[in-house]
Write a protein that binds this DNA or RNA. Structure first.
Lengths: 345, 345
DNA sequence: CTGTTAGCGCTTTCAG
DNA sequence: CTGAAAGCGCTAACAG
């Protein structure tokens, strides 16, 4: 059917070994034979069978990245960047969606054992480290945008705690004291770290966080995130003492809150200040434009790929290393109170 | 290092063949041996090497889908759905991003020749059919959301022409006569088909399309699409006789136009009616809410996977087959004129 | 029911 | 510089 190295060898009148040599450009082959082989390859439309080569070489040139789902704006940008960088380095990126399921995650980790990939980037983790650890024997793993208790591998991630900190600090500086915190429904470390930073800022202002202002949108996979924001607004609206500001885990949720608030005649930011996370294009489009925390997604993606490939090449046992990226607060209209014209003015 | 079938065989005191049989659950193995093998596998933490199995079986269990980029909202939903369906059918989906480059596309098509995948879905095509055709010898290809001249493979796609038709018809029924058409910058069939439907509706209303109302956002990869919409609005604004309605190829572009228009004090839909394409969550969020054409993305994705796998299993030569999905116009505020209060009312 | 054997297509010593 | 041969890990006849 498809031509193999053997057909080429026969047609060129040389051995398989010689053909292999010209394919890989290693060691030396006489000019004459090289030409004969090249001619034969062209004639037979030969392309090496990578499966066979991989088996022989014990490597695949593939790396996998596990994300919850690519429908999510953050992750879609992350994997897009990773794919580009991987390709630059001569690797093919397999994009795997765990859909927030332990089981799926393990499934993909198994790619290491089954030798389908040379290494894995976990960009969302549901399993305990003790589970993940067992896969390290089969190849390197790095964490990206996520930390796991006890992890003994490189972690490439924005400084989530700092993100929570600058967001809260900004709101506090605007004079807010009743500030709500909302994190995604996933039980990841990410949200906890942001909350830690958030609380730190609150403490610095000698305030105490009231747990009634802690929200957890339970359904990360409902789809758009907008919907979560809407629902969240209803909850806030029904409170006897609603917060005057809210920090959310994503721009979509923030936008959902804002649009719903507007429908009910609330003024953002005067009645409710809102901060998002991610600085998506959408954030500057909506009205009022959204104050948000910008993540250097591309840099993180590139670094994750680079570190993983480095580890693949080194082949040494991994240890914890932290590559931390700074976050930046982008201040827009959704948190800066406008002067309200009053009857006295 | 990692355990192989041979280690298991040795430990269990049976032959490699027997181990293989229990792994694959085919043919019969005595209860006793089966247990011994299972025990040995567990003890050695054995997982079969898929590369070896693939080489032997001449199949990989992988299929690839080529999209321009997953950062795009439409494609990210498409691949997400495909991945889920593929997995259900026991296949792993490789998501490949061509970034609108001929060369990348060919690169991925080569996966067929190198036996890295069993079949390919092209969800964006830049190359001529004559180029693509040459890969058919190595495995089945189907087109999704895209048609190519002379294609001799199954095409799974929404009825783009109909989409253009219903959009235009709706605007015409609203009394518009100066209607602009804007398609994405990619030179794909998709935009042309929509335009065809668009023109058909215009003819039915005994109007003639003025080419000055034809826009082509040149830069599909600029990122958000919002930006394209903004730029487009400036062009419209500078026209001596601007259109009163516009049909765009994506919700993002539509939203870009709307937000920019609002900034300049235009009223949407009264000064400019806007229709998007895709019915993204965003469409119902913005103000005014966006009239748009809804695509049954999940159905299309599932069907594409099913058809491809069918073809992989059949192994017969492909022929042109058309699986067409209906589109639906979702009418919202961006095209329904509001009564403008006048001084006379 | 089970083991032996022969490859899948490729790379890589090891002699020549 | 080149070829023969072994083998990556697995499966599938084919005998027994």
């Amino acid at each position: 059917m498809t031509a193999t190295i053997e057909h080429v060898a026969k047609l060129a009148g040389v051995s398989k070994a010689t053909v292999s040599r010209v394919i890989n450009g290693v060691s030396t082959v006489s000019e004459e034979n090289r030409n004969k082989v090249k001619k034969a390859m062209k004639e037979l439309n030969f392309v090496p069978n990578l499966t066979a080569r991989n088996l022989r070489n014990q490597r695949t040139g593939n790396i996998a990245v596990v994300v919850p789902e690519v429908g999510n704006a953050f992750f879609s940008r992350l994997v897009q960047s990773m794919a580009i960088e991987a390709e630059k380095q001569g690797y093919q990126l397999l994009i795997c969606q765990s859909r927030y399921k332990h089981e799926q995650e393990v499934n993909y980790l198994n790619f290491l054992k089954t030798k389908q990939v040379d290494g894995i980037i976990l960009a969302a983790v549901r399993n305990e480290w003790e589970v993940i650890e067992t896969y390290l024997a089969s190849g390197p793993i790095v964490l990206c945008n996520e930390t796991v208790q006890n992890a003994t591998v490189p972690v490439i991630s924005p400084n989530q705690e700092y993100g929570g900190y600058i967001a809260a600090k900004h709101l506090l500086e605007q004079g807010h004291t009743k500030i709500a915190y909302c994190m995604g429904g996933d039980d990841s470390k990410t949200g906890l770290l942001r909350k830690k930073g958030f609380l730190k800022a609150i403490q610095e202002f000698d305030l105490i966080f009231d747990e009634k202002y802690y929200f957890n949108s339970e359904t990360p996979q409902t789809g758009s995130g907008f919907e979560d924001g809407r629902v969240l607004f209803y909850q806030i609206r029904n409170m006897t003492e609603p917060p005057t500001a809210i920090f959310t885990g994503s721009d979509e949720v923030a936008v959902g809150i804002i649009t719903e608030a507007k429908k009910f005649g609330w003024n953002v930011p005067n009645d409710l200040a809102v901060i998002g996370f991610d600085n998506q294009p959408l954030a500057s489009i909506i009205e009022p434009s959204l104050t948000t925390v910008d993540q250097p997604i591309d840099l993180i993606a590139q670094k994750a790929i680079k570190v993983l490939i480095e580890k693949i090449n080194e082949g040494t046992t991994l240890k914890y290393e932290n590559y931390e990226f700074p976050l930046e607060l982008i201040i827009r209209e959704s948190t800066i109170k406008t002067r309200i014209p009053t009857v006295f003015s």
